[in-house]
């Protein structure tokens, strides 16, 4: 399905990934150089870093408590005290958006990390062992990909019960096949390469081959798809929150904030405006960064 759009996990800004990869310095350095030259990618990186900082320092930055209700102050328009106004409980929207960054980034990265781990494991197993193992795992991927993703997520949450954690699990599940297929095809192509054949010939253990050769070689596409997948995961989490299937009150989850404020859109449009903007900006940041990473790391994936 939409591999290119519909992607995967963790935010590893290249500068963080680099030190761990000292052995392979030159390609990563090269990539960082080309990433740096890409203006849009830098914009994306800045947006993402901005929200990461918000999330980390929420307790210090936020002007109020995210669950401090004061019904006398409800639905106040933006002002000097409340830059983004207040919601129907008189809570400061800016504060809630800052704390919301924590939730969205957490759900986005964690769910994608989950799908990378499970997806990669399944993909590697399928690719490496082939035959019926491959057939079974690939069919499972096919089946999962045959559902529109949000529908599958809704069904999974219905089974598990609505909560932030379960939304996270649902999103992780729907992204598993994306990484599974990615890793499987990497394994298939790497497997044929000479040094792997050589490694096998000298009696290297399967697990060593996987850990030392196949995984490092697949890192670049994982990072690229992962970054883009965080973007989709954030939207999906917000969508589930919006449908009442994700975070529960008074958690300041952006999608839930939108759903709660819907009824007040006429009298207090700011209650709907800002949470949506926050979702859009974060997603935009990850998308731009992902595009940039793709161009830098894996020119073949460019279209």
């Amino acid at each position: 399905m939409a591999e290119a759009l519909h992607n995967t996990p963790p935010v590893l800004p290249p500068e963080m990934a680099r030190p761990a990869e000292e052995k392979a310095v030159s390609p990563w350095k090269e990539a960082w150089r080309s990433f740096r030259k890409n203006k849009l990618a830098i914009v994306g990186l800045s947006i993402v870093s901005f929200f990461i900082l918000l999330a980390i320092f929420a307790d210090l930055i936020a002007p109020y408590e995210y669950d401090a209700t004061n019904l006398r102050n409800k639905n106040l328009a933006p002002s000097a005290e409340h830059w983004f106004g207040t919601d129907e409980f008189g809570r400061d929207i800016l504060t809630r958006i800052i704390y919301g960054a924590r939730i969205s980034l957490w759900v986005g990265t964690l769910s994608v990390a989950g799908s990378i781990i499970v997806g990669s494991a399944l993909g590697i197993i399928a690719g490496y062992y082939g035959r019926w193992v491959d057939a079974v795992i690939s069919r499972i991927f096919d089946i999962l990909l045959a559902f529109p993703s949000i529908l599958l997520a809704i069904a999974v949450v219905s089974v598990l019960g609505p909560s932030l954690r379960n939304a996270l699990i649902a999103i992780a599940i729907i992204n598993v096949p994306t990484f599974g297929r990615l890793l499987r095809s990497r394994v298939l192509s790497v497997k044929e390469e000479e040094y792997i054949t050589a490694a096998k010939a000298i009696g290297m253990k399967d697990s060593r081959i996987l850990l030392h050769h196949i995984l490092p070689n697949s890192l670049a596409p994982i990072i690229v798809s992962g970054t883009l997948a965080v973007a989709t995961a954030i939207i999906e989490a917000a969508a589930l929150g919006f449908l009442g299937l994700g975070a529960q009150a008074p958690t300041p989850e952006w999608g839930k904030m939108l759903a709660d404020s819907r009824n007040y859109i006429i009298d207090a449009p700011w209650t709907v405006l800002f949470p949506g903007l926050a979702i859009m900006l974060t997603v935009l940041g990850f998308n731009l960064m992902g595009d940039g990473l793709r161009d830098a790391l894996d020119p073949r994936m460019k279209n």
Binding site: A239, L258, M280, V283, L284
Partner: peptide, 16 residues
């Protein structure tokens, strides 16, 4: 670029 990153449920609300 913005369109690709759009939460459509929010876009729908803003349109309305």
């Amino acid at each position: 670029l913005i369109g690709v990153s759009m939460p459509i449920f929010w876009l729908g609300l803003m349109e309305q």
